[in-house]
Write a protein that binds this DNA or RNA. Sequence first.
DNA 1: AGGACTTTCAACCGGTTGGTTGACTGGCTC
DNA 2: GAGCCAGTCAACCAACCGGTTGAAAGTCCT
Lengths: 121, 121
Amino acid sequence: MVADALSQIFAALADPTRRDMVARLAVGDATVNQLAEPYEMSLQAVYKHLRVLEGAGVVSRPPGPQPRSVRLETEVFDLMDTWIERARRQAEERYRRLDAVLSAMNETTTTETDEQNGSVA
Amino acid sequence: MVADALSQIFAALADPTRRDMVARLAVGDATVNQLAEPYEMSLQAVYKHLRVLEGAGVVSRPPGPQPRSVRLETEVFDLMDTWIERARRQAEERYRRLDAVLSAMNETTTTETDEQNGSVA
DNA sequence: AGGACTTTCAACCGGTTGGTTGACTGGCTC
DNA sequence: GAGCCAGTCAACCAACCGGTTGAAAGTCCT
């Protein structure tokens, strides 16, 4: 196992319950019980989710007195952003290049170009 | 199942092979065979990955002549960004607020006071 | 029509996941 | 030290995932 960091982060955030926990933790730290309170599932299930988030580095649990706190670890956002923005930038750049090529072709060759497109799903 | 869009997107990107496909598709469209070429796995396995990406809306396959092309669908990046940045912003704002409170406490009350807790409703 | 190639479906397998229940530990407070 | 409460571990289960193989459609070109 020990999947790479990004895989773990994305996988951790692929669950709605876990995303909700993260959203709530962004507002403020919480204990396991506070975290579990809104959900229907058992406390143990929440704890398991927590361990997934912790394993992905999305969350940390500084040791402390009885009601241990859970804290959001915001660096993972940077990791995701880096990957996402890289892909996005490359794609956009490519589209720009493609447009350039197309318009260049349009200028030089005045032949017809019936290009019908209807994307969108 | 029809899990919500974000869950599907995150889950799709949680696999290294799939992320690699996306990275390569950001550079340019490809056919399934071209996509599959670098990997050890069977063509069918690649196809399955493709369907996951397609199901998440990360990728589209406009109908066309025999070697069908696979195209990256960049809108999903916006969806992820929106979620990520919202969480990040809230967390940062909260830390800023916390810092303000702490420094304020440091200034006004130079004596007693160990009121340190960060709980949440 | 035949043949090659691409695409897709289906069944199967081992490992992981999300959830359950039950039991156990660790600290605090009487 | 008894008891409670928060947190944790372990076993189990059904469902899902990533991969395989085998077979069936399409689709294109002679």
